Amino acid sequence: MKYALLLLALVSNLAIADQCQSDKLSIHKNFAMGRFNTCEVSAAGHYRLTLKPENLPINPSPWYALRLESSQAQQIELELLVEHGKPRYLPKVSVDKQHWQPVDYQIDGSSMHIQLALPKGTLWLAGQEIMDDEDYQQWQQQLEAKGLESIVLGQSVQGKPIEGLISRADSQDWLIMIGRQHPPEITGAMAMTHFVDEVMEESAQAMALRKRFNVLLVPNMNPDGVHAGNWRHNVGGVDLNRDWFSRAQPETQAVHSYLQKILADGGKIRFALDFHSTHRDVFYTMPTDYGLTPPELVDNWLAQLAEAIKPYPVNIKPGHNKDRGVFKQYIADTYGVHAVTYEVGDNTDRQDIANVARAAAQQLMDVLKTLP
């Protein structure tokens, strides 16, 4: 009876909203990328959090991020219960939201169980490292210090700026790189930062590329969805990487309008990359016989990359999706040039991400210099 009354008291202290509150612990989501839907005390020291998608139908990638404020050192168990999907992202913890370590977990159907030894104070737990708008702003400032021009291409559904960065050249040729169409895909975002940093180095190779090609970067295509911790969509409920032909969303409209302006000003789109995450490293390419010129450009690039990083595998999956509205198909069909979707595994070693991305940038710069 005494235990039942104690449990009832714990539950009565619980707020099923932006935080989960008991006498010794509060669990919060009131920060950028913070995400869970409901929280309840299932027993003393046991907390069940539900994870629900922003809308349906959806390609399920259940994201979660929470901040735990503990009044004392204690042991707890978290159950993350996924609705409309199964757990994908493996839990990591941080005391400063900058340095992350994996923690043990068990998956049982749609639930993930995590045993945590909480210190007194603050602990962050998330499905991947948190990379939010503040991180992008810091990176953008570093690139601006190297001479890149910051522009606003348009606004998101909620009015946030769709920001771009431009490295200008003495030519009409353009390279396009975009990222973060899908909010939780952190490893793809990591790869983009390493890739771009290599392109912006002061090496002879990088400086020659920047002299020949203008470069447009759009690091965060989905600022609303990233801030909200969405699983997949923008706040309009749409997968942006299915919206490139219909362009029903302001985010895709903004980038398309700028690319059309490049053409109207006499420019030429010559190559494009979009960065993503999935269950393994893979490069989604357009088929060699699709009619793009030169047809072997991407084959040559990835063959050189495979040689440069062997025995690390380079997985290549050619294909076209005329009816799906994906970015690489849009680039190929609208501008008649190669585009590649650069996918990084969710659990790929972080140093491998950096090494492969920098090597990929080096080999692509080498291949692009052969373009007429």
Score class of each variant (00 low, 15 high):
residue 294 P to H: 06
residue 302 L to H: 07
residue 328 K to C: 11
residue 292 L to W: 05
residue 317 K to I: 12
residue 333 D to C: 00
residue 303 A to V: 14
residue 326 V to S: 08
residue 280 R to A: 14
residue 339 A to R: 06
residue 329 Q to R: 04
residue 291 G to P: 08
residue 337 V to I: 11
residue 342 Y to A: 07
residue 284 Y to K: 03
residue 285 T to F: 10
residue 309 I to T: 02
residue 344 V to P: 05
residue 316 I to F: 01
residue 337 V to G: 01
residue 308 A to V: 05
residue 311 P to W: 08
residue 280 R to Y: 14
residue 283 F to H: 12
residue 281 D to W: 08
residue 309 I to C: 04
residue 306 A to M: 07
residue 282 V to H: 04
residue 293 T to E: 15
residue 307 E to L: 11
residue 283 F to D: 01
residue 297 L to Q: 04
residue 307 E to V: 12
residue 330 Y to V: 06
residue 338 H to F: 09
residue 347 N to I: 14
residue 297 L to A: 00
residue 336 G to K: 05
residue 283 F to Q: 07
residue 341 T to Q: 13
residue 292 L to K: 04
residue 329 Q to F: 05
residue 303 A to Q: 15
residue 342 Y to W: 12
residue 329 Q to C: 01
residue 338 H to I: 03
residue 313 P to W: 04
residue 299 D to L: 06
residue 287 P to K: 00
residue 294 P to L: 09
residue 312 Y to M: 11
residue 342 Y to N: 07
residue 316 I to H: 00
residue 346 D to E: 14
residue 319 G to W: 08
residue 346 D to C: 05
residue 338 H to L: 09
residue 340 V to Q: 06
residue 333 D to T: 12
residue 346 D to W: 14
residue 294 P to K: 02
residue 327 F to C: 08
residue 311 P to F: 05
residue 330 Y to D: 00
residue 307 E to A: 13
residue 332 A to P: 04
residue 304 Q to D: 14
residue 324 R to N: 08
residue 300 N to I: 10
residue 284 Y to V: 03
residue 343 E to T: 05
residue 345 G to I: 09
residue 314 V to G: 05
residue 300 N to R: 12
residue 329 Q to S: 12
residue 329 Q to P: 00
residue 301 W to Y: 12
residue 340 V to K: 02
residue 301 W to R: 00
residue 324 R to D: 08
residue 296 E to P: 05
residue 305 L to V: 08
residue 309 I to H: 05
residue 319 G to S: 01
residue 298 V to K: 02
residue 288 T to C: 08
residue 310 K to A: 15
residue 312 Y to H: 13
residue 295 P to G: 00
residue 325 G to E: 02
residue 327 F to W: 10
residue 295 P to F: 08
residue 288 T to A: 11
residue 317 K to L: 13
residue 290 Y to M: 07
residue 314 V to L: 06
residue 316 I to A: 01
residue 324 R to W: 13
residue 329 Q to K: 04
residue 348 T to K: 05
residue 316 I to K: 04
residue 343 E to L: 00
residue 311 P to E: 06
residue 282 V to S: 07
residue 303 A to M: 13
residue 313 P to H: 01
residue 336 G to A: 03
residue 333 D to Y: 09
residue 327 F to H: 10
residue 314 V to E: 02
residue 337 V to C: 11
residue 285 T to W: 10
residue 339 A to C: 13
residue 327 F to A: 10
residue 297 L to F: 11
residue 303 A to R: 12
residue 321 N to Y: 14
residue 350 R to E: 11
residue 325 G to D: 03
residue 348 T to Q: 10
residue 332 A to S: 05
residue 294 P to Q: 00
residue 332 A to L: 05
residue 318 P to W: 12
residue 284 Y to D: 03
residue 327 F to E: 09
